[in-house]
């Protein structure tokens, strides 16, 4: 982890974060957003995933500022460092979980975050329809992908984020993947390039 961070994620969660008194309210609110989207889009789950992703992106763009303000973190030097920062500090201070960073590709540009628990999906069961389409198509916690994409883009990392497994679908674990497309260049003032 970066030495420039003032505290560990653990300490910050304990001392420096306003916690929601009733985390069930948070979980249930998210659940009702997802179910409303399913109704609004007539159970077109691909569209629901996209909407959740977009909502997450807008959240991420704002959340990154709070993250930086709380941690005093500077830009990471390597993508490996970014991965550690996301898991040990980011997820820790906002959701009090610490996903495992794993399954790096050879080129060091793609890795997985395995969520051992998922506060968004407490109490949730996907309803089993006759065709089971919801289990094939809906990524219930897709908002997380959007949040990561939005937050990282603000620190000039262009990434793709997607779910590959979700225990809600009957998989053995909940896993999302991050792929670094490129480091974005800081913009230059007009007339300087």
């Amino acid at each position: 982890m970066s030495k420039t961070t003032r505290y560990s994620g653990d300490e910050m969660w304990k001392n420096n974060v306003e916690k929601i008194q009733n985390s069930e309210l948070f979980t249930l609110t998210y659940g009702s957003v997802v179910s409303q989207l399913c109704r609004d889009f007539n159970n077109n789950y691909q569209e629901v995933n996209q909407q959740l992703d977009r909502m997450g992106y807008n959240i991420g763009m704002r959340l990154i500022e709070e993250f930086l303000a709380k941690t005093g973190a500077q830009r990471c030097q390597t993508f490996k460092e970014t991965a550690e920062m996301i898991s040990k500090v980011g997820f820790k201070i906002f959701l009090n979980i610490q996903p495992t960073v794993t399954n790096w590709t050879q080129d060091g540009k793609t890795f997985s975050l395995v969520l051992n628990e998922n506060p968004l999906a407490d109490f949730v069961e996907l309803p089993m329809g006759p065709d089971n389409r919801i289990c094939r198509d809906l990524w219930y916690s897709q908002v997380l992908c959007g949040v990561l994409r939005g937050a990282l883009q603000m620190v000039q990392l262009d990434v793709d984020v997607w779910f590959v497994k979700d225990v809600l679908r009957g998989d053995d674990q909940t896993e999302l993947r991050l792929r670094l497309n490129k480091f974005l260049k800081d913009e230059v003032p007009a007339g300087e390039d």
């Binding site: 704002r62 500022e65 709070e66 930086l68 303000a69 709380k70 005093g72």
Partner: peptide
């Protein structure tokens, strides 16, 4: 100015 005033009044102001 950033970590308090900007974050609270701009970033967290939806």
């Amino acid at each position: 100015l950033y970590s308090n005033y900007y974050v609270r009044n701009v970033a967290q102001n939806a």
